[in-house]
């Protein structure tokens, strides 16, 4: 398999009310190009699933959306990504407020080695979102409730976050992310380290969060993509092969590569 020459993304890469617009995004790790001319819209209040075989660049693309790749020295990005029409790679843009607007949940649950309360309160604290102790308590409670964790932890808010189970830790990370009230949440395989029950809870949560947030989720599980997302984008060797409404991708894929992947011929 090799990169397709003069590839044009199949399906509907653009949508009506985009929150994020990626245009001709290319990513280089030193000499090696990891992503080729990806153009994709992510609509407001939708869940878009990014799927594809390992090493296809879906995580790399996701990390471009809040400039997490900036922390890698050799990583270079071309093209532009617009959040509400504003290019986030503009030299004038500061990544700190950007990441407050575009939050991220990682593959492995990574709570801070602090208490549950401090984990959730950290974001609001550094951004100065709470004016008083009461304010902060309220934000923490609301975030934990939205993440479906409040009832499980309300009696032990000051015990370490690392003492929770894997699924609870991941929901704590989601609570921590929504505590800063972002507009977009990026999720990089959020359930890959979790058991099916914890996964089901997170999926349910994603569905609820859609009301208030725009969500992009990278996943290796096609069932998960089918369950939680409205649109699905299929990546292959750094190229965006096909974007379509999820049910369409899984029933009538346009591209042969997409079809091969979802039917399990490779992946």
């Amino acid at each position: 398999m090799s990169i397709i020459e003069n590839h044009k993304t199949n399906g509907a890469a653009f949508c009506e009310n985009p929150k994020l617009k990626a245009r001709d995004v290319g990513v280089f790790y030193g000499e090696k190009q990891a992503i080729f001319d990806v153009s994709l819209d992510i609509g407001a209040n939708e869940v878009i699933a990014l799927i594809g075989p390992s090493g296809c660049g879906k995580s790399t693309f996701l990390r471009c959306l809040n400039r997490m790749n900036d922390t890698i020295d050799i990583c270079q990005i071309r093209g532009e990504i617009l959040l509400d029409g504003e290019n986030i790679y503009d030299p004038k843009v500061d990544v700190v407020p950007l990441r407050a607007r575009v939050g991220m949940v990682f593959q492995k649950p990574n709570p801070f080695p602090k208490s549950i309360y401090d984990n959730v309160a950290y974001g609001p604290r550094i951004h100065g979102l709470a004016h008083s102790r009461v304010d902060l308590d309220e934000i923490v409670e609301k975030s934990l409730q939205r993440a479906g964790l409040w009832n499980e932890v309300k009696d032990r808010l000051h015990s370490p976050g690392t003492g929770l189970s894997g699924g609870q830790q991941q929901r704590l990370c989601i609570a921590r992310t929504i505590a800063v009230d972002p507009e977009v949440i990026l999720m990089d395989e959020p359930c890959s380290a979790l058991d099916p029950i914890a996964t089901a809870k997170i999926e349910e949560l994603i569905d609820e969060l859609r009301e208030n947030y725009t969500i992009a989720i990278v996943t290796h599980s096609m069932q998960q993509a089918a369950r939680v997302s409205q649109r699905t984008a299929y990546f292959h060797l750094g190229q965006l092969i096909e974007v379509n409404p999820t049910d369409q991708v899984f029933t009538t894929p346009q591209h042969t590569l997409t079809e091969a992947y979802i039917t399990g011929r490779f992946g």
């Binding site: 809040n66 997490m68 922390t71 990544v95 700190v96 407020p97 950007l98 990441r99 407050a100 939050g103 991220m104 949940v105 990682f106 492995k108 990574n110 709570p111 801070f112 080695p113 950290y122 974001g123 550094i126 951004h127 990370c173 921590r176 992310t177 800063v180």
Partner: peptide, 17 residues
Amino acid sequence: PPSIREAAFGLGASKMQ
């Protein structure tokens, strides 16, 4: 662990923070 850094960066913490 780099995951701790990532978590903090992901929340919008500055380098100093």
